[in-house]
């Protein structure tokens, strides 16, 4: 078996389905992760108050507080906490809502064990990559926008807001490849660290969010441009 470089990482598993939770806990522990299990939204928040985690796996249909509310509360306090939503809901509206509330990834039930483990490792890898690359590029300015990659605080003119870790990672990846065309496949594989065969819509949702934040008019973007049939390209030099 491939050695897990993230052995010892702490994961909070929030799942109310007992049998599924036990199976997941077994597999994650077997991979070397330390897993705490919360059976509902309230318990999840209690665990988060008293422990530090590297990642949260979050079911959506939970008693007391649903997964959306938990994600929202987690995101308001722990900006860089990777959240993987795990749910039976497949509607695109749920997926968009989950991603908008700060989830970094979304996996629908029933899922393949290997895919789940790959996504978990991918998210932990991204977290680490983000941490190291932030040390090199901490504040970036383009147009009227200023992005602080350390605390994720941004300003766009007089507007102030905070990016989610995933939004920041995507923006950083595009900035680091300024002027070059970056395909959706490349973004999925390097930023999301998942197979591009799974989905590409997630990328589009995140790009549209970044445009709303930073573009003067998000319908005709200046900085993050779509290159037809190729992907996206970041450019902060004014067109002549």
């Amino acid at each position: 078996m491939e050695k897990n470089p993230f052995k010892g990482s702490k994961i909070l598993l929030v799942e109310d389905e007992e049998t599924l939770a036990i199976g997941l806990q077994y597999n994650l522990s077997d991979e070397g992760f330390i897993v705490d299990l919360a059976k509902d939204g309230k318990e999840a928040l209690k665990f988060l108050e008293s422990n530090v985690y590297d990642l949260i796996i979050l079911d959506l249909m939970l008693p007391y507080l649903d997964g959306f509310e938990v994600a929202e509360r987690v995101r308001s306090r722990l900006l860089q906490m990777p959240i993987l939503m795990l749910t039976a809901r497949t509607a695109i509206e749920d997926r968009i809502k989950g991603l908008q509330l700060g989830a970094d990834d979304y996996l629908t039930k029933p899922f393949h064990l290997q895919e789940l483990l790959l996504r978990v490792k991918g998210m932990l890898k991204r977290k680490m990559w983000y941490k190291t690359s932030t040390e090199i590029l901490s504040v970036f300015r383009f147009g009227k926008n200023v992005v602080n990659f350390e605390n994720l605080n941004c300003t766009s003119g007089s507007k102030k807001f905070v990016l989610t870790p995933h939004e920041a990672m995507l923006l950083k990846y595009l900035i680091e490849r300024k002027g070059k065309i970056v395909s959706r496949k490349e973004l999925l594989e390097n930023v999301w660290q998942i197979s591009s065969e799974i989905e590409t819509r997630t990328i589009d949702i995140f790009i549209s969010r970044l445009r709303k934040y930073f573009e003067p008019d998000h319908n005709s973007p200046v900085y993050i441009k779509s290159i037809r049939s190729a992907g996206y390209s970041f450019n902060d030099e004014k067109e002549k």
Binding site: E17, L20, D30
Partner: peptide, 25 residues
């Protein structure tokens, strides 16, 4: 429909998870 989907998919995911665990580990 949403509830039935949840009720069908949850045990199914669990069965699939255990089968894959037994197969691969």
């Amino acid at each position: 429909i949403a509830n039935v989907t949840h009720e069908l998919k949850s045990p199914l995911s669990s069965i699939q998870l255990y089968l894959e665990t037994l197969e691969t580990k």
